[in-house]
């Protein structure tokens, strides 16, 4: 039995991933049945070496899955700041939104991932974008009682006002 390229990416099985891609380049951006590419699986499960390797091989970081999920949102949701930074360095849309209006910043806040929220805010994530339910990142931080994330957003707003 062999694992699919999506499973190899998610499990960070780099040697097998390299071998698998050597057999078939076209697998690099192969979406699964919900539209998730190997890069998205690696980003969702925090496999930084796999993310780095797939990007080096030319994996497309801009691909959206069927419900507009993105590698950046998956990494932000998981709190994987280094992967968030890698994807932002590839110029992905920092304000991409999906099926419930979720943006990378909203997922970072929802997961109480302070470092991810800081990284996204530092790179200009839009703090006014609301989820379909009308919650902004600040609303969400307050509603969930995530004080540190709330402070990070407040500090960012102050910085914007001072400019």
């Amino acid at each position: 039995d062999s694992l699919s390229i999506h499973q190899l990416s998610a499990q960070g099985e780099l040697d097998q991933l390299i071998a698998c891609l050597q057999k078939g380049e076209q697998l690099l951006n192969r979406p699964d049945e919900r539209g998730f590419t190997p890069l998205m699986w690696a980003a969702a499960f925090g496999e930084i070496a796999a993310v780095r390797y797939l990007l080096e091989k030319g994996a497309d970081p801009h691909v959206l899955a069927k419900e507009r999920e993105s590698a950046l949102s998956l990494a932000s949701n998981g709190g994987f700041k280094d992967i968030v930074t890698m994807l932002l360095d590839k110029g992905v849309d920092i304000n991409v939104y999906d099926w419930n209006g979720g943006t990378p910043l909203l997922y970072a806040v929802r997961g109480n991932h302070v470092k991810c929220a800081e990284a996204l805010l530092a790179r200009g994530a839009d703090i006014t974008m609301e989820a379909d339910s009308g919650y902004t990142p600040m609303d969400l931080a307050v509603a969930l009682g995530y004080k540190k994330v709330q402070q990070v957003i407040e500090a960012h707003i102050l910085k914007l006002l001072q400019r």
Binding site: L3, Q7, Q11, M40, E69, N77, G102, R110, Y135, A143
Partner: peptide
């Protein structure tokens, strides 16, 4: 050897469980 499979990634509903804003 038993292969362990990860379940497909997914993104949660942002405001599940919160009152309507």
């Amino acid at each position: 050897t038993q292969l362990s499979l990860y379940t497909s990634p997914s993104l949660p509903n942002i405001t599940l469980g919160l009152p309507a804003s």
